[in-house]
């Protein structure tokens, strides 16, 4: 079922890794939607499946051991999972670009930065080398790097500047969707502020849709329109940012907020979620969060919760807390 107002519509996606100890259910029955021009915050802890989902969209899940078991990834009305490898190659970097966490390792250390950007342009657009290099300098200017630095090598740049170069590469072909995987996690807080400001600014100018993968709810509050909270391979809550921050409904989302020390208030003790993330090779039955959940009832151990709309556009996968018509 394709919705033409959506740029990206992921339905019932499951991605598993076959390993010695069994099957890692990294992504399990995931639904996710992204409208044109929207920024979606994709939040979860280590091992929740955020990066696997992003790699799934790019069709870059390493196989073996990884395998897309089921689902659809409808992008601009077409299922990416049905595309050939050649078609995917033009999608990657062209229509969908990705920024990785560590700018230190995503640049080639022996090629000047303008050539690294031009490489991307030449691959996707019908231009000669000179035009591609000109485009590279334009892109550098766009991310705030002066043209005289175009011939420098990555090691001559600081961490924040390298991440700017990575952003320039990602945006060089004017992608419809930008997936940013923890783009500022490796940066210091004042440099992070610079990069986030730049990304917000570019989004306004270029109208690119974006998936911002992060574990930091502060970054979501600042940069995103919508938020998806992920736990053990599935989305447990999805809402407009305002709804999610003012009325978090899923017990896991609430636990996540409670774990954060508050800058404005003095707290004696942080409220923690008991227990640990489940072993992805051996997920609990029913709702994967039920063994750690204070609200769990008997049905939670047996029934896999469906997404329920608790207010317009605010979906929660919890039969106890997320009943239709209940005041969140």
């Amino acid at each position: 079922m394709a919705n033409d107002r959506l740029l990206l519509d992921i339905q019932d996606l499951s991605i598993h890794y076959e390993v010695e100890d069994g099957t890692v259910r990294a992504v399990e029955g995931l639904d996710l939607r992204l409208g044109y021009g929207e920024t979606l915050g994709f939040v979860g802890e280590t091992g929740a499946g955020k990066t696997t989902t992003a790699l799934g969209i790019m069709r870059l899940v390493p196989s073996p051991p990884g395998r897309v078991v089921k689902g659809e990834i409808i992008f601009e009305g077409e299922d990416l999972l049905k595309k050939s490898e050649a078609e995917m190659r033009s999608v990657r970097g062209g229509k969908i670009a990705m920024i990785f966490q560590d700018p230190m390792t995503s640049l080639n250390p022996v090629i000047t930065v303008d050539r690294q950007i031009a490489e991307m342009v030449a691959l996707h657009q019908d231009v000669n080398e000179k035009e591609a290099l000109e485009r590279a300098v334009e892109m550098l200017a766009l991310v705030g790097i002066r043209p005289e630095r175009a011939k420098d090598y990555p090691h001559q740049f600081s961490g924040g500047m390298k991440q700017r170069v990575v952003i320039a590469i990602a945006l060089a072909c004017d992608p419809a969707l930008l997936i940013a995987d923890e783009p500022t996690t490796a940066l210091d807080v004042t440099i992070q502020a610079q990069v986030l400001e730049l990304m917000k600014d570019l989004k306004r100018k270029l109208k690119t849709s974006m998936i911002m993968i992060t574990h930091d709810l502060g970054i979501v509050a600042e940069t995103c329109d919508k938020v998806a909270i992920m736990y053990a391979g599935r989305v447990v809550e999805y809402a407009e940012k305002r709804h999610l921050f003012l009325n978090p409904v899923h017990p896991y989302t609430q636990g996540l907020f409670n774990s954060l020390p508050d800058l404005d208030e003095d707290q004696e003790e942080l409220k923690t979620i008991p227990g640990l993330m489940p072993d992805p090779t051996n997920l609990p039955s029913g709702c994967p969060f039920h063994p750690r959940c204070g609200h769990a009832g008997p049905q939670c151990a047996t029934e896999s919760p469906a997404m329920v709309e608790v207010e317009p556009g605010h979906l929660v996968a919890c039969p106890v807390r997320g009943r239709k018509g209940d005041k969140p």
């Binding site: 600081s158 924040g160 500047m161 807080v189 004042t190 440099i191 992070q192 502020a193 610079q194 986030l196 400001e197 930091d216 709810l217 502060g218 970054i219 979501v220 509050a221 600042e222 940012k241 305002r242 921050f245 003012l246 907020f257 954060l260 800058l263």
Partner: peptide, 20 residues
């Protein structure tokens, strides 16, 4: 001022430092 706060409706005067 550079810390992103996980809250809505916080009005802050953000100081973006130049350079490294």
């Amino acid at each position: 001022s550079a810390i992103p706060l996980p809250k809505m409706d916080v009005v802050r005067d953000r100081i973006i430092l130049e350079g490294d």
